[in-house]
Structures are given as C-alpha cells and as structure tokens.
C-alpha cells in the first residue's frame, strides 16, 4: 500500500520536473497601474510604443498626439514627468532608451529613427552607415540591446540590421524564406533576436551570431489572432501582444505556450488593440494599450 502511495505522489512530481512544459511555473499578470494623460494633462491618444530605462523612467510613444511622454515610476504607480513634440517626429510608433543617454524613436510616417535628448531636443536621425546593398532601409521596429547596439527590423530589404551605437553596420541577418510579416523584434541578454510573425502567428529567433533566423515556436494561431509586439524577460520567457484579440500570450524559453493573460475590454486590466510591450528585470510588464488610449503596467506573478 505504501509503495502505491509513494508512486502516486512521486510520479507526477518527477514527470513535471522532467517535462519542461509541465514543470513550468504558471505566470499571471496582475494589473498594477495605468497612465491616461501626459505631463500637460492631455489624454494619451493611440499610444503604440513603450520603453523602460531599467531605473525609474518610462517612455511612451504617444502616437496619435505626435508626442513622446515620460513617466516617473513610483512604486507601482506612474507620475507624468515630461512630454514633448518635435517636427521631426510627428508620428512616433516605437521608442527606446539609449544606454548612453537620450531616447531613440521611430516615426511611422517618415519611417526614420530619430535621436533626442531626455529633455526632448532633436539630436539628429539614426543614419546607418556601411550597409551592404540594397541600401534602402525601412524600419518597422527596432531594439537597443544592453551594449547599446541597435537592432533594426528592416522590412524593405528583409533582414535584421545590427548597428553599433553610432549607427555603423555590424552585421545583418536575412529573413527566412518562409514567413508571413514581421512586425516587431526583441533581443535578450545573450544577444538572441526574437521576431514576431503577425501573419503566421509564430515567433522566430536567431541566436547570438547566427546567420539565419529560424522558427522558435509552433504556429500559435489557435491561441492568438494577430500579434504585433514582442518582449523577452531575463529568464527567456516571451511575451506577445495580440492586437486583434486583445490579450498577452506568454511563451516559455523553449517556445512552448504558457498561457494567455488579460482580454479584450475597456476597463483597467483589459486591452483593446494593444501594441508594443516591454518587460523589466524586476517583473513589470508595460504595454501600449492603443485602442484604450492609455499605457498599462502589470506585475508578473510567478
């Protein structure tokens, strides 16, 4: 009888440990805070980009208002810090903090990446140099890694461009032959690049110095509608914003489906046509809740 009991208790435990998808911890997202207006008191309008500096500042691409809004993070709350509009950046759709100071933002209308100071002064455009042909670059999104290298999702030439902080060409990774349309990318601490295919509903990746981008996950079309944003946390977990489905899908470090959080709605904690997202090392997820004209923070609960 004892041996039977031992088997009943031990087998599931051993099975769970042995199988990554069963042994994986369940993740939940708890709504923590929302930002509805900028430092001028103006309501946000269709924000599409978010970035966190890892310390205390959150930058938001307030797309519909043509502004960049900064927020100070205080505990789990957000306090409007500054906001600015530039004639060179009338339609910001992605934003990133530059580790050397300042901000980079992608303008959706001109499809140029703009450099600006934290005070909102224009510092010039990111001008990629030494790029192999074709020389035309159309960035759909970009990310800056821990070393300050800029990873540009160049949809025109079908590649990920890796540039040094000054914009000098480092290397390129061509898109795979079979894919739908890449809308966003993320880079983890090891330099692995992750791409989200909105049409195919799957994630692709290229490790460190890999020369090819390969499928990372299976098709997730059963679990999401049209993913447009991707982020990776320090543990290698992937977060996807499902624009048309209103939700966040989480994948494990092995690409396995780990769950779907939030849902389509208007109230705090729910999402409507969300766009870019960002995950901090301290376990906070920031998401541009485009259709709700706000930015939301979620605490990641293990």
């Amino acid at each position: 009888m004892r041996s039977v009991l031992r088997f009943v208790v031990l087998f599931p435990a051993v099975f769970c440990l042995a199988h990554p998808s069963h042994g994986a911890e369940a993740l939940k997202l708890r709504p923590a805070a929302s930002a509805y207006s900028d430092s001028d008191g103006k309501p946000l309008k269709n924000p599409e980009g978010v970035a966190y500096d890892g310390k205390s500042l959150l930058a938001v691409a307030d797309t519909g208002n043509g502004k960049i809004a900064l927020y100070a993070i205080q505990g789990e709350g957000l306090k409007p810090h500054a906001s600015f509009a530039l004639p060179q950046l009338t339609y910001p759709i992605r934003v990133q903090f530059d580790p050397q100071g300042g901000i980079l933002a992608l303008d959706g209308k001109t499809r140029k990446i703009v450099r600006l100071t934290l005070a909102g002064e224009f510092r010039g455009y990111l001008d990629p140099s030494g790029i192999p042909t074709p020389g035309t670059v159309v960035p759909r999104s970009f990310r800056i890694d821990g070393k300050g290298n800029i990873h540009v999702l160049d949809v025109f030439s079908g590649r990920v461009l890796v540039l040094d902080p000054s914009g000098k060409f480092q290397r390129e990774i061509p898109f795979p032959r079979e894919h739908g349309f890449f809308s966003d990318l993320a880079v983890d601490g090891n330099g692995t690049v992750f791409l989200v295919d909105s049409v195919g509903g799957r994630v692709f990746s290229a490790r460190g110095n890999a020369k090819e981008i390969a499928p990372f996950s299976e098709s997730l079309q059963e679990d999401l509608n049209f993913p447009v944003g991707i982020a990776v946390d320090g543990r290698g977990r992937i977060y996807l914003s499902d624009q048309n489905g209103g939700g966040i899908v989480i994948l494990g470090p092995d690409g396995s489906f780990r769950g779907r959080q939030s849902g389509m709605g208007w109230k705090d904690g729910l999402l409507r046509y969300p766009s870019a997202l960002h995950v901090s090392d301290s376990g906070t997820l920031f998401i541009a809740d485009r259709g709700n004209n706000r930015v939301q923070l979620f605490t990641i609960i293990q």
């Binding site: 009338t90 959706g108 025109f156 898109f175 809308s183």
Partner: peptide, 14 residues
Amino acid sequence: GRNRIHWPLVDHVS
C-alpha cells in the same frame, strides 16, 4: 504623405 502605411507596401515584396 499619410501617417500610417499598410506595412506590406514597403516590405521586400511591396
């Protein structure tokens, strides 16, 4: 000249 482009129009297939 408009704010938002249909992105496939500017990809490699265009």
